[in-house]
Amino acid sequence: MPRVVFTSNLARHLACPPAEVSGATVRVALEAVFAANPRLERYVLDDQGGLRTHVNVFVDGELVRDAEGLSDPVSPGGEIYVLQALAGG
């Protein structure tokens, strides 16, 4: 099962421990995490369900290509990292 890991910066706002979920794409895997942690969805996705502008998702070290649809495939042993893009101020 893919493992989903969230940036520690998110833990300031809500609990989001690493999770092992089923899912062959980033979208399906993340939806499985959100089903168990509904508040988390709006921190990662925008109102239209796409990745927030300043959030990046890596699958096995590669930045996802489909930031809107999140259709990028994930292997059963794959790792999904949800990170924040850098910002100043």
């Binding site: 706002h13 921190y43 300043h54």
Partner: peptide
């Protein structure tokens, strides 16, 4: 307005 993580 959390910037990275949206409006709360």
């Amino acid at each position: 307005n959390l910037g990275h993580f949206g409006v709360k």
